[in-house]
Design a protein around this nucleic acid. Sequence first.
DNA 1: AGTTTGTTCAC
DNA 2: TGAACAAAC
Length: 463
Amino acid sequence: MPAPAIFWFRRDLRLHDNPALIAAADGRPIVPLFVLDDEAPGMRPLGGASRWWLHHSLAELAAGLERRGLELVLRRGPAARILAEIAAETGADSIFAGSRPEPDAIARDRALIPALRQHGVTLTLVADSLLFSPRRLMTGAGEPFKVFTPFWRAALALGDPPASSGVPGLMPGPACRGDDLDDWRLLPSTPDWAGGLRAAWQPGETAARDRLARFVDRGLGDYGRLRDLPAVDGTSRLSPHLAWGEISPRQVWHAVRGREDGTGAAKFLSEVGWREFSYHLLLASPGLAEANWRADFDRFPWVEDKATFRAWRRGETGYPMVDAGMRELRSTGYMHNRVRMIAGSFLVKHLLTDWRRGEAWFWDNLVDADHANNAASWQWVAGSGADAAPYFRIFNPVLQGERYDPDGTYVRRWLPELGGLPATAIHKPWTLAKPPRDYPAPIVDHRLARDRALAAFQSLKTK
DNA sequence: AGTTTGTTCAC
DNA sequence: TGAACAAAC
């Protein structure tokens, strides 16, 4: 019997279509391991919603492994030390893991390989979290892409990614002591704010596969028509599952490519393409979450205002579409994509708040928090990013509400205090003769805020 | 992946 | 008076 291999789960919490797991299981017994390395220097700590998700996803993964006779080992601490310890405890001489495309993770993993070799252990990393290698895609000039459309065209020209695979045969390795998941305290307790998350989500690979199958079956055909309506269940809602790798983008790709009857499929795959593009940008600009991609935004006259930032976070800006989104986020750890754009635009353009503050709030509150997507999308909405909305594209939260939530169903769902308003006033309650008493008046006037934002943008040009 | 404003042209 | 369009922000 060959020596056992450690399979190090990271953001690939699945058994299906996991190429690194297939490589590990090739004739060897497996010690499945997850390391909570939340104090690693340079690595961003998980947000609260992500920690909630991780707890349940790990529980699911452990159950799936147990059905196959394997025990998931949980350990907390610096990955380099834990991996060496587990190898020594189990006699493993190899470790396999899915590679992570984030620049800081790449640096950490690169340092791990020689460190582990000193203990006589090889670390093999298998790329599997993206459809296309972000470094392989370059413009004709050999530069990273700055615009999505040519990026995605070049990606599609590469042809189909490899077919997805099933679960390999898994042989249990030696037993190994691990932590108790509950002791990690990933779940909130005092207070327990996760009730809305529990009601909205089922973390784990099984639920991810079910959701993909159901979406391809029932949602894909109408995706182009319904994807922008937040009141409707018209999107895949796969983002948190993709963020934790409970499903792979290859599985998504091939499930969709089998069903190209409408225009929904190409549109939906291009949304997966934005995820690829975000990682492409992050690799070209490792500071994407910290620094303006466009350097001229370093001169932007951001306004620090505790009261308006607090109102935004709590969903008390007086603009129903913004507030409904922010309350959906706080309640469920999610916000519909259309509403993310409206709420994000409002924070940056109406309140002149530095996009990094919004990025940090989303990072903490989103169950689908993803370093590349979150950073690239906030820079897109702020106008500071690659292929971004031009800064003068300022969403009017009233018009956006009337266009994408015409009867106010979405707003009423998250703002029950507006439940009795007629559809004609639901997105501008202040126009009523008797505005609702328990809902705030707009914290900024749209017209004033728009002019102020345009002036701030002008100030970048004239210096 | 936008909004506002001004112009034209058909009621 | 208002829909449709273009241009500017």
